[in-house]
Design a binder for these strands. Structure first.
Length: 718
DNA sequence: TTAGGGTTAG
């Protein structure tokens, strides 16, 4: 059952013990390097004979290596002879060897060595048991864990709190939490570590409620107890509870450490709580944690998710030694904010300096390609991750690829891709295809995607809503009604949408048609004024996003009360002019709100940053950073799909030219659809040329509008 | 020489 020393990983050579060594380098002519280099029993004997000949102390031998070489070779007794000559007890040396294995990356060798020791009647002590139990925990090796526990009882070590805690930990890690709990209940004495072990393991099993029950019962709490509980809430998707507990921790006078900071920042990232995130950042700097790379990585994520991409970039730039996590967080953040080109540039830099990407890096890259419509580039990255880096694509990578292909309109290819996946597609994968079908109006494939999605999650309201949208787009109102009936029959409720905005540290949450807010009346009045301005600049409400069966006027009324519009108006009323407005939404921003927010960003001269369920939208000067696809239609025929990677055009042009279409965007390249009208910018003058008559243009008298690239526009503003 | 908490994807 034992493998040979050659086939096992050697523990690292310990550093020379100069304190015990009585000889200086001049007194030790053979040098320690030679002594430390033995890997076989023969080489060990050579080194040992040197020790004897030169009359050097035995302590010069790296004893854990002696133990290792002898333990897995026939020379076990020889090791014992050597150990008898050193001052420390023999078991100490074996324990060092066990520790190296258990704490290193070969816990299985700790178990093997244990059996070898048993064969030779070496008497274990409490340390031996602790190291072995640790190895069993790492391996989730319950049968050996029980054997060691039996030994603990036999040797009477159960009164040793260190050992007993490790036994509890072992049972919990091996998946028998109830055994751990029984032992915990029976323990005559427990300390804060015992409680922390139970709490942490319950959290790992997703039993956050039971963990919190124990937390409330603790006789005393350490910073680790608080941190474990805060991090636990973040891990199980309860960031509000995490923040609440953090405040309680502060009130209790407990000082957060680096790990607490990471957990709280992660909660701020999830909540989009920028104010608190900033305060925690300042606190972290005051504590001297500025160089902690894990904190910096979480800060990048927090600022990205709170819509402050520039601050995130500053944190990234200031890190001394960036890890792959720092690069991945920044690349993913740039992609999420629509800065795909910069994300790819950063990846080049990362590769140039020799940082090896991981699976998460590729998720960011694929997102970047997806939002820029770089289909070939994305395909190359997907192939490269396995070929060049040996990273096996996970379900998330497949989801990104389907999203990339579907968004770009390659729906059949996306479908084939799903059918050929080596792993079972999940809701994200089919959902990506469904999203593409909605964008490109493919009812047939949408129905195929829905068939799978409803099998996976029959109560997910989002799927029904999208299908209903697809039918509505195709004018299939009977089918839309059928979907609504299906939802009713199955008891599927549409998740209520909400949007929130934080002003002076207070979070204001709005639902559609909200009348509960204390400023509701003023908000609606202000909206009416804004609506007039919007309409005068070409805004036409897109009532097709309202799936309810009602007349157009009522649909408009519903549209005007969408939660993100209310949050935005509230923000305009309560923040200084020209300052950015940040909004969070639990669902995707609807197409009408997207158009409206673009327009309002220009009218009110505000930057509006919206974090929705999927990504960020930064509305500025009438455009959005998400750069939707420009879908070109001629009559009913889809001509081309162009991702918006081209210079954006000046806002006044866009508001007037594009405010009437449902598929328009802030960018333009070759053709733009406008109520059956095709417009082509002249190749030389960049002036729009109409390919057929457009009554709206005539009404506006904007026949000679120039399509100025936004970049030039910005220069002229400066 | 022994026990407990941390970052990027969703």
């Amino acid at each position: 059952m034992f493998s040979s020393a050659a086939s096992l990983r050697l523990p690292p050579s310990p550093k020379p013990n100069h304190r015990n060594s009585q000889s200086s380098s001049t007194e030790n002519p053979i040098g320690t390097d030679l002594l430390y280099s033995f890997n076989t029993p023969f080489e060990l004997k050579q080194a040992h004979s040197h020790i004897i000949k030169t009359n050097n102390p035995h302590s010069l031998l790296p004893l854990s290596r002696v133990a290792f070489v002898c333990a897995f070779s026939p020379s076990f007794n020889y090791a014992r002879q050597i150990f008898h000559r050193v001052e420390k007890p023999e078991i100490f040396v074996w324990n060092s060897c066990l520790k190296t294995f258990a704490e290193g990356n070969s816990p299985i060798d700790a178990i093997r060595l244990f059996y070898r020791l048993r064969q030779f009647d070496v008497q274990p002590d409490t340390f031996t048991c602790s190291f072995l139990l640790k190895a069993c925990s790492l391996l989730s090796d319950l049968s050996n864990g029980r054997i060691v526990h039996g030994l603990v009882l036999k040797l009477g070590f159960q009164s040793d709190l260190f050992v007993e805690n490790t036994v509890v930990h072992m049972y919990a890690c091996c998946g028998v939490i109830d055994d751990a709990r029984r032992l915990f209940e029976k323990m005559p004495q427990r300390d804060v570590v015992t409680w922390n072990i139970m709490i942490t393991q319950l959290i790992k099993l997703g039993e956050i409620g039971r963990a919190y029950d124990l937390f409330t019962q603790m006789p005393e709490r350490s910073v680790r107890s608080w941190t474990a509980m805060i991090a636990g809430y973040v891990q199980c998707g309860k960031p509000k509870e995490a923040i609440h507990l953090f405040r309680q921790m502060e009130e209790a006078g407990e000082k957060p450490n680096e790990v607490t900071i990471v957990a709280v920042l992660a909660a701020c990232a999830d909540l989009g709580a920028l104010d608190l995130g900033r305060r925690v950042h300042e606190y972290s700097n005051r504590c001297g944690f500025k160089r902690n790379v894990r904190i910096c990585n979480t800060l990048i994520d927090m600022y990205v998710k709170c819509g402050c991409l520039e601050v995130a970039r500053r944190v990234f730039d200031e890190i001394d030694e960036r890890t792959v996590v720092s690069w991945s967080a920044m690349i993913g953040g740039l992609a999420m904010h629509g800065q795909g080109e910069e994300a790819l540039r950063l990846f080049s830099r990362m590769s140039q300096i020799g940082i090896r990407p991981n699976g998460v890096t590729f998720i960011g890259l694929l997102h970047a390609c997806s939002h820029m419509g770089l289909v070939n580039e994305g395909r190359k990255f997907f192939a490269s991750m396995t070929r060049d880096y040996g990273i096996i694509p996970q379900i998330e990578h497949y989801g990104c690829m389907v999203d990339l292909l579907s968004r770009a309109g390659n729906l059949q290819e996306a479908h084939e891709f799903i059918k050929n996946m080596p792993i079972e597609p999940n809701g994200v994968v089919w959902g990506a295809l469904l999203g593409g079908c909605k964008l490109h109006k493919n009812v047939e494939l949408a129905e195929e995607a829905i068939k799978h999605l409803l099998k996976l999650d029959p109560l997910n309201d989002g799927y029904y809503v999208v299908l209903s949208n697809v039918y509505a787009d195709a004018g299939r109102w009977e089918d839309t009604g059928r979907v609504r009936k299906l939802m009713r029959d199955r008891g599927v409720k549409k998740t209520p949408g909400w949007s929130s905005i934080t002003i002076d540290g207070v979070v204001h949450e709005f639902v559609a048609g909200d009348v509960a807010h204390h400023q509701a009346e003023e908000i609606y009045k202000r909206w009416e004024k804004l609506l007039q301005q919007m309409k005068s600049r070409g805004y036409v409400p897109d009532t097709s996003v309202v799936l309810l069966d009602m007349d157009e006027d009522k649909k408009e009324h519903v549209l005007y009360r969408h939660s993100e519009k209310l949050a935005l108006v509230f923000g305009l009323m309560n923040t200084p002019p020209r300052t950015p407005i940040r909004i969070m939404k639990n669902l995707r921003v609807c197409e009408d709100c997207h158009s409206a927010l673009k327009l309002i960003s220009a009218i009110a001269a505000r930057e509006i940053i919206v974090r929705d369920r999927n990504r960020f939208h930064c509305f500025k000067d009438g455009s959005c950073s998400c750069r939707e696809y420009c879908v070109i239609w001629e009559g009913d025929q889809l001509l081309e799909v162009i991702p918006q990677v081209f210079p954006l055009c000046e806002i006044s042009v866009f508001v007037n030219l594009c405010g009437f279409t449902r598929v328009w965007s802030g960018g333009i390249k070759i053709l733009l659809h406008l109520d059956q009208t095709l417009i082509k910018p002249n190749e030389h003058t960049n002036k729009p040329e109409r390919l057929n008559d457009n009554p709206l243009l005539q009404e506006d008298g904007k026949k000679d509008i120039e399509l100025k690239p936004l970049i030039e526009h910005e220069k002229s503003v400066k």
